[in-house]
Amino acid sequence: MIVSLTLILLCQLLGEVIARGSGWPVPGPVLGMLILLVVLSLRDRIRKAVPEFGRALDSTGKGLLAHLSLLFIPASVGVVQRFDVLAAHGVGLVVALVVSTFITLVVTVVTFVVVSRLSGSSMDANDEVRAGERP
């Protein structure tokens, strides 16, 4: 677990270094995700040297993702500092958020489904089975 946690943090660190170093306005963790993707595709080779490598990485990563909701609480509690802005513009902001989220969900899902049909990459039965194998 320590090895895989170190590896995940190392990917994040590399991501931060690249993002800050290049001045590219991309979040470090997003680049870290791309780096981990490369590491995973090299995993079978790394496994020859470190046999336990892959298994622990999967369980550690899924452990982090299983309680993703928890990680948003600290930043969100920041709401207590902005009651004044919310009192002044709260109604308009909530209306804007609801309307925009609704439109975005519909437009995105419809674009995905329509282009998926046009390009012939519709979901097939195998996808369902493969997804069902995961816990």
Binding site: P27, I35, S41, T60, L71, A75, S116, D127
Partner: peptide
């Protein structure tokens, strides 16, 4: 707790890699 947002974002690569075939076939949509 807040700190873990970063590593969790990185860890999104794991389900992404597991489902890579499904994902690659859906690249256009």
């Amino acid at each position: 707790v807040h700190f873990l947002l970063g590593p969790a974002t990185v860890a999104l690569a794991i389900p992404l890699y597991e489902n890579r075939r499904v994902v690659l076939r859906a690249i256009v949509p």
